[in-house]
Design a protein around this nucleic acid. Structure first.
Lengths: 274, 274
DNA sequence: CAAAATACGTAACATAAGATACAGCGCTCC
DNA sequence: GGAGCGCTGTATCTTATGTTACGTATTTTG
């Protein structure tokens, strides 16, 4: 069974004429990046002419050069996204640790790899500067994350509201939202229409939206000021929100730190109320 | 110092207009492959027009799109050749974020090290065997975890209830609970008296308790049939529930697998109801 | 050794990709 | 509330990329 283009090549390289073989060798040697460049560059690197490259590609079974490039890109995408290719990583202790945990840990690393300190700091600052109100809402499975975040933020600053209950209830809250306010939305597949509509209206009212979503980006990303794309794929029937959860905790921590002085006093006051 | 295009983007994303920011977010979420595709594909994925993509690229300092693509390819080439460089964003130790992530990951490993597959399997089996009802409840910060778990379990089996609202409300629900039922409680420091009392009464009625708590063990552990102790310490003002969250997800997955046949049908039926 | 077949490169072509000009729109700031 | 600025998309243009046709070179075979 042939699963990668590299295998396909080594399978057929024996039957190729000299020029195409040079093309094949060049591609294998710089796999797969040479194949993503133009035909002219590829041919120059291999020391053959452009048509030879095209004949080579065609011999591999591709209709045209772009199709060949797409295949390479898909392969690369799979490699970059799945931790499978990194199982060589000696840090992962063998044994009966569930693949679920491994995938989750990898999701978190991957999520944070695509997330700069700067970006998180910007969002934290936005949440910490107390110009307006902060609203949080989530989808079917992610609403608990919104609640979790709201539960913490509400302690360190005023005017934090979790939007819960029926759609009509939180839709009506739009009336209270304006330019100075921030709306934090959690939305992963399958994206909920009601949330998208809600986000759109809020956006029109000038509300700044912070979106927690998966790597495929909820349509709400269109309206969002900040987008956090977390990895959700795990070997389970369900998607995992764990990576987003950790990002949320990280943000909570960052906001708390920024509000250090204020929040310390506020927390003391709250304690006093008990 | 800026070493990668991803960093360059997160550095300037703050100064970008909305459309270009969407381009940036899309690229980061699918880094770097979207950038290797054509302008048209990139723009479609980001939901903006081609010129916006080109302006975005130009703002990053590239003369034209091919030059931008070459830079991405060079970066990718370097990454593919030395897997070592694929470690975490090397520029992050400065921020207070990386330690947070590291601690969280370590918490999870540690949590699972003290958790045998057998134990998880037992709990999953208990939750899967449909003899009685399943109730879930949590404390101030952990109730969202209870909700999260309830949201999933309720889909794959009947008689799953999250206990919410005022104490008096869920206290009254005790009347419905008996030997055949399971109560899942989330309780970490500072342990809530109300929850402890609730657990005690439930225990007296013969309810089997599954407790999610921290490494210091909530007093509820006295009454619990199964105890899951997660690590919660992170360099932050707050404790982290992330490890417990991951255990919860793992359990959800395990229960779903055990109910495979039943739940598949049930999920299909639910889809039909939409 | 000769003749045919195959392979390869040059050069012309067509097409699809990136770049640009411009107009409409929304936003911000007086 | 109005004027100005800046951002965005449509439509057009230009470039360069992939493709193909064809002639020459090379190898193979009878």
């Amino acid at each position: 069974m042939i699963s990668s283009i590299a295998e396909l090549i080594s399978d057929r390289i024996g039957t190729m004429p000299a020029g195409e073989r040079r093309a094949a060798q060049t591609l294998i040697a710089n796999y797969p990046l040479i194949g993503l460049k133009t035909v002219a560059e590829f041919s120059a690197a291999a020391g053959v002419s452009s048509p030879t490259i095209l004949r080579f590609v065609s011999r591999l079974g591709f209709q045209n050069y772009p199709e060949f490039q797409s295949a390479l890109q898909d392969e690369l995408a799979a490699q970059l996204q799945s931790p499978a290719s990194r199982t060589l990583n000696p840090a992962s202790p063998s044994g009966a640790i569930s693949p679920m945990l491994e995938a989750t840990l990898e999701n978190m690393r991957e999520t944070f790899r695509h997330l700069s300190d700067r970006q998180l700091a910007d969002i934290a600052t936005r949440l910490a500067e107390r110009r307006g109100k902060t609203f949080l809402i989530g989808g079917r499975f992610t609403d608990p994350l919104a609640r979790y975040m709201a539960a913490h933020l509400a302690i360190i600053q005023p005017d934090v509201y979790h939007l819960a209950g029926q759609e009509s209830i939180w839709r009506d809250r739009l009336i209270d939202m304006g330019k100075r306010d921030v709306l934090v939305i959690f939305d992963i597949r399958r994206y909920q229409d009601s949330l998208v509509r809600f986000a759109e209206t809020a956006h029109q009212r000038g509300v700044q939206i912070v979106l927690f979503t998966d790597q495929w980006l909820s349509p709400i990303a269109r309206f969002a000021r900040h987008v956090i794309a977390g990895r959700t794929a795990v070997p389970s029937a369900w998607d995992s929100s764990a990576a987003l959860f950790v990002v949320a905790e990280t943000l909570i921590g960052a906001v708390t730190r920024q509000l250090e002085a204020d929040s310390a006093k506020r927390i003391r006051d709250l304690e006093g109320l008990r």
